[in-house]
Design a protein around this nucleic acid. Sequence first.
DNA 1: CGTCGCGTTGACAAGGTTCAAATTTGGTGG
DNA 2: CCACCAAATTTGAACCTTGTCAACGCGACG
Lengths: 221, 221
Amino acid sequence: MLLRTSASSSRPVDGPLSALAAERVFCSEFRYRRGTEIFGEGEETEYVYQIVSGAVRTYKLLCDGRRQVNAFHLPGDMFGLENGAAHRFSAEAVVATTVRIAKRRSLVEAMQGQRAGSSRVLGLVTQNLQHAENHMLLLGRKTALERVAAFLLEMDRRLGHPDVIVLPMSRRDIADYLGLTLETVSRACSKLRDQKMLKLEGPTQRQVVLLDRKGLAEYDT
Amino acid sequence: MLLRTSASSSRPVDGPLSALAAERVFCSEFRYRRGTEIFGEGEETEYVYQIVSGAVRTYKLLCDGRRQVNAFHLPGDMFGLENGAAHRFSAEAVVATTVRIAKRRSLVEAMQGQRAGSSRVLGLVTQNLQHAENHMLLLGRKTALERVAAFLLEMDRRLGHPDVIVLPMSRRDIADYLGLTLETVSRACSKLRDQKMLKLEGPTQRQVVLLDRKGLAEYDT
DNA sequence: CGTCGCGTTGACAAGGTTCAAATTTGGTGG
DNA sequence: CCACCAAATTTGAACCTTGTCAACGCGACG
């Protein structure tokens, strides 16, 4: 798995929780096979998760099956921490995934123990909010090409600007993240390839080499 | 966003912040004329605001002028509280608006004084996040009619289910909130009117009477 | 009384979706 | 080892929802 758990600047997570991990709040590891549900919308928020390896999507569904992926979570990221008693969305493993699990209660208690604890939680929620605000701009106002360019740059950044971006998610996942159809995502990728902004490799074209990050960034704005 | 500080559904005034207001953290009132900027994206977060009367929009812009309205803020709502030192979006008065202003520093200090203070901030940020998550679903996956129906039901709820919803914002504002054009919003309103789900009144059709909330809710899902 | 802002409506264009077909690959079982 | 099938992706063509452009009406206001 080429997903790097970049520790450096581009990846602002692992920070807030490493202390907790060290305290053994994250008591056990757990593995999920590709495509399996980790929790469902509306379920009780019993656990909090941190990804060791793999990738997770969190999403909401409309009653007729339309899906909106809120976010992709990569190694080092935490997810599933919510204020209320119920999850506001569902989570599934995009690929085979290993997570560390903490009881929500014990995490909350540990937070109260630490003085800086609650502000760390606040920081995490704020980060999520910030991402959501940017994503609303993307979903509400950007073209298909701009969305795909922004997505690739986001992954590039979060994976620490590797030579080859190995996407764990399918075109459909990307489409549901970007508010498009999988065909439109595929066409946008092809267009960017034709414009020599990237190369697509690998059996399912999930390995992406960015050839012109500046050009892509101009689509982003 | 939609910082609803209301505890009970029908009276959106003074929730988590009333204690602070009582402590005179909100030291002064300020008035903005319709259309004026309250703060701009990137500016220093010097103040925090609570609306006394009127309405405010917060939004982001792309470089070519495309606009995405994050949220509308109504009387009782708080806005402008951010973790970092810089505002992540701009805020403008939709109509003539009176706000109470608190220095961010003094608010933060007051929070640290109160034990429950920081968890109140967390609650506000979480509410914003929750709204943003729902809005991503709307922007990414709902049709124009569904978006407009959802918008009207949101306003109805936040205004306490009045007989007549008096919208403070223009069709363009609504469009930029819903990721549509003003013409599409207008057409959707006309269609709902033709379907007898609502009545449009007033000189600029900004007074809305919901005739069939159940029917609208089915568009919402 | 003319102008301006706002909203509605129509005609047309276009970006994105839908439907369909072809390709590739990996897995499974004979 | 190989045949066969399922899943993922790409690409094309037709279609449709929404955007664009324009005209018009209405009320407010100077």
